[in-house]
Amino acid sequence: MAMLELSEVNTYYGNIHALKGISITVDKGEIVTLIGSNGAGKSTTLLTISGLVPPRTGSITLEGRSLTGMPAHAITGLGVVQSPEGRRVFPRMSVLENLEMGAYVLRRVDPEDLERVYELFPRLKERATQKAGTLSGGEQQMLAIGRALMGRPKLLLLDEPSMGLSPILVDQIFSIIREINQQGTTVLLVEQNALMALSVAHRGYVLQTGEIVLADSAANLITNDMVRKAYLGEE
C-alpha cells in the first residue's frame, strides 16, 4: 500500500484551476520528486496535501486513511510535515524556539531529536539563541528543514529546499536529504533544480500547468529527452 496517494485531485484558487486531476503515489521509504517550471503547480500540490489549500475534488489518503477535509494542523499531527516554500521560519523567535515549535505535535521536545538536528546542522546549534529573522538565507533553510524534522515526520514534504542557496550549500542540503531518507523518513521533494532533485530521488513526476505529463524512475527521467530539454537546460 502506498504511504501517500493522491487520486484525481483538483485544486482551485478562486476560479483558477491550479491542479487538474493529479494522481501521485509515494511509497514508504522513497524520495519522490515533483519537477516542473514556475507555476506548474508543484507548491500547490504540497499545500493541498498539507490541507492549507484543500482540493475541490479528488481524494488524498495517508496509509489508507483519508485526509480530505482535515484541517492543516490535524494533517501535521498525523506525521505529514512540510517545510514550506520561502522557509517561513518564525522571525522573532529564537532558533531553539523555532525547533521547539517543530516538535509542537509531540507535546514535548525530545533532547535526542534536538541533538540529531544539531548534528545534521551544526550551524543551528551555534545560533540556538539567535532570533531566526537574523539568520542568513541558508541558515534559515537549515532551520526550516530542522524544524520539520523535530516533528518526527513519517512523510516529509520539502518545498524548494535549494532556493537561493549557494552551490556548496545546495550540495550539502541534498546530501542531508539523502541522509534523512536513509534514517527512515519518506520524502516528497519539490524542486526547480531538476538535476539535483533527480539525482537524490528514486522516482519523479513532471508537472506542467497543473497536470502530470511524465512519471518515471529518476534514472529514466534524467535521460528522458523532453526532461533534458525542458528542465536540464540542454539543447
Binding site: 492549507l52 505535535v105 524544524r147
Partner: peptide, 9 residues
Amino acid sequence: QASALMGID
C-alpha cells in the same frame, strides 16, 4: 500558515 504546518490549531 507556518503555525498550522507545525500542527498548531
